[in-house]
């Protein structure tokens, strides 16, 4: 099972690369769906069956809503200018860094494990040397590295939304790696969060297509209502001047 979960972490990082580099909007949506769904299961021990089903449902619902919202999107989009090889290279580098950082953290936890007041209940799998949380943190690092650019310098709403969903999945991976064991209620909550987040991204994509016919973010389009200058009240005298009255 450990090998499968480590492989799943690699798949998640690969899906994130596809998400940010794809020029076909629906391919990007597929990538983010795989990343969201996969990141729910990279945990040691695995969540229980109810939590697994809930997380899968939440991820699929989110991905489906984004998929549907892209029905009228014109392909292709700009994608990431560095292309999929660049994205893959960033993902591999971040994955390795994350893995090494997790190994160091696990070593620290194992070194200072003692009789202290916090001797139990924190990142037990990581402290025990399990490969799953290391792979999880590696995948989280890859998702953060790939998702940060579209979020900070967003050019279209799909890339922005995909980047945000990748960051949310990264937070989920970190959580799974650092908790003692997955909690069913929290997993249910995260399933709802993922589904609602996907719905929000789909709503924004739909709104962009509806208003502009494409996915491009146009800065400055919201400023026309703002009051920029002081108005001259003298142009609107309170009482009409007698000489102008008819």
């Amino acid at each position: 099972m450990t090998i499968i979960l480590v492989f799943l972490a690699v798949v998640v990082a690969g899906a994130a690369s596809v998400t940010v580099s794809a020029q076909q909007p629906r391919l990007a949506a597929l990538g983010v769906l795989v990343a969201m769904a996969g990141s729910a299961y990279i945990a040691d021990p695995l969540p229980d069956l109810v939590a697994i089903v809930a997380r899968l449902t939440g991820a699929v619902l989110a991905g489906y809503l984004i998929w549907v919202s892209l029905r009228e999107a014109e392909a292709p989009t700009a994608g990431w200018q560095i292309g999929w090889p660049g994205a893959a290279a960033i993902a591999v580098a971040a994955f390795v860094i994350g893995w090494l950082a997790a190994t160091a953290l696990g070593g620290d936890l194992a070194t200072v494990a003692g009789e202290g007041p916090s001797a139990t209940g924190v990142a037990t799998a990581l402290a025990d040397g399990s490969l799953v949380p290391r792979a999880g943190i590696g995948a989280a690092a890859a998702l953060i590295a790939l998702g940060a650019a579209p979020v900070l310098i967003a050019r279209d709403v799909l890339r922005l939304g995909s980047g945000l969903l990748l960051l949310l999945s990264a937070a989920d991976l970190v959580r799974h790696a650092l908790v003692a064991e997955p909690d069913r209620v929290v997993e249910l909550g995260m399933a709802v969060v993922v589904a609602i987040s996907g719905a929000a991204v789909a709503g924004l994509v739909h709104g962009s297509l509806k208003h502009y016919g494409d996915l491009v973010i146009r800065p400055g389009t919201g400023q026309r209502f703002a009051i920029r200058h002081r108005s001259a009240d003298e142009a609107h005298p309170r009482r009409a001047r007698p000489d102008l009255a008819e």
């Binding site: 979020v151 967003a154 949310l168 990264a170 937070a171 924004l204 502009y212 389009t221 919201g222 026309r224």
Partner: peptide, 27 residues
């Protein structure tokens, strides 16, 4: 209105970054 999409993009950014950061910090 014309500003809905850009305002929505900004709002979505904050609305999803906030839970991502909070969940990460809480863990």
């Amino acid at each position: 209105g014309p500003g809905v999409v850009i305002a929505g993009a900004r709002e979505l950014r904050v609305s999803l970054l906030v839970p991502a950061l909070l969940i990460g910090v809480a863990a």
